[in-house]
Amino acid sequence: MTVSIIVPCHNESANLATLYARICSIMDACQEPWEMICINDGSKDDTLLQLITLHQRDSRIQIIDLSRNFGKEAALTAGLDAARGDAAIPLDADLQDPPEVIPELIKHWKEGFDVVNAVRLSRDGESWLKRASAHFFYRVINRMSEVDIPADTGDFRLLSRPVLDALQSLPERRRFMKGLFAWVGFRSTNVYYHRAPRHSGKTTWNYWKLWNFAVEGITSFSQVPLQMAAYLGFLVSLLAFIYAIWLVISTLVYGNPVKGYPSMMVTLLFLGGVQLMALGIIGEYLGRIYEESKHRPIYLVRQIWQRHTQHHDNHIENKTN
């Protein structure tokens, strides 16, 4: 039973040699047939050159070179689509998720589980703010979503062939993979590990990108923000109606003295802010519908290196589902 290890790469040239050495040591000790599919997601350093060198040394290393940077979710999708093994294991190239956990994932897979999640017990090398925001995000999205997304679990996990086939049948183009892994279901279990700091280099995930990633996840798997906008509108309308009744009674009882400018401005700004917030939430969902309606491919492939064969296509390969 072949195991496909999926490694999205974006400016990870400093980590590739160590990653390859550790994977070779672990997988050869497991005595399992394996392949490693590396996706070059528009790297600007010599990541592609390093990958080609590894491929020439070991034909089990396959390369998918995307035409530009499409983002990690698209790169991960490209790797999962290309996986030919009976199981696939997404793995970050920065070695924060240790390959030494792979034998335990395979062990549970052979026991009959289709999905084996690798759950983080700690996140060394990350700031307290990033750890706290990640902890908060998983709790919030699970309260909002009908799908139970495993907390403190990244892309690092094992997916059996039936799960891979199910993922390939999903038509979404804007993908939140952690949610899709949970949505397809299947029999699952967890293993636990301590996440290490990056082996080399700096992460490109700043707080703005993490915020957008969180918004993507919530809007992909929950309609609660839309419902909250509606409830907030009803609440503000109710308060405005009560305030109008109070004004009528106050005028009849105490007369109609001229009110101050500040109270009027506070009311106008509050109502305007509520309306803009509701429109922003609606806009997020409308934007997703707009992106899906264009039916653009998730990713475009420039070249593929596979089993000592380099494919030079006259056209650009694409993934359209």
Rank of each mutant, 00 (worst) to 15 (best):
N206W: 05
S250L: 03
S200W: 04
Y193S: 04
P262E: 07
Q227A: 07
M277P: 01
I245A: 13
G260L: 02
L238I: 08
V258Q: 15
L269H: 08
G233H: 03
R187S: 10
L247I: 14
K202R: 14
S263G: 14
F234H: 13
M265N: 03
T203N: 08
S263M: 08
T204I: 11
Q223A: 10
G260Q: 10
L232P: 00
E216T: 13
G255A: 05
Y254S: 10
Y207Q: 15
Q275E: 14
G233D: 13
K259A: 10
W246L: 05
W208C: 06
T203H: 04
V236I: 06
I249H: 06
G255D: 10
R187I: 03
R195A: 14
S188T: 12
L269V: 09
Y193I: 09
F213Y: 13
A229G: 00
L252Y: 11
K209D: 07
L239M: 13
M277A: 14
G255F: 04
W246V: 04
G201M: 00
M264Y: 09
A240S: 14
Q275W: 15
A196C: 08
F213A: 15
R198K: 14
A182H: 02
T189F: 07
A240Y: 06
W208F: 09
L276K: 10
L268K: 10
V253A: 01
T204M: 05
Q223I: 08
V253F: 02
L269Q: 11
T189L: 06
A240D: 15
P257V: 03
P225S: 00
L238K: 12
V258R: 11
A244P: 00
K259N: 10
W211T: 12
K259G: 10
M277N: 13
R187M: 03
M265D: 12
H194K: 12
P257Y: 06
T204D: 13
N212A: 05
M228R: 07
L269R: 11
W205I: 15
V258W: 07
L180P: 03
A229R: 02
V215S: 03
T189E: 10
G272C: 08
L271N: 13
N212G: 04
V248C: 04
G185V: 02
F181Q: 06
L235W: 13
V258P: 10
N190I: 04
A214K: 05
T189D: 07
A230S: 12
A240V: 07
N256E: 12
L235I: 06
G233C: 02
S237I: 03
I218G: 06
L232V: 09
A278W: 04
V236E: 05
V191S: 05
I218S: 08
L210M: 15
P262H: 01
G185Q: 03
L269G: 01
A214Q: 09
V266D: 11
L239P: 04
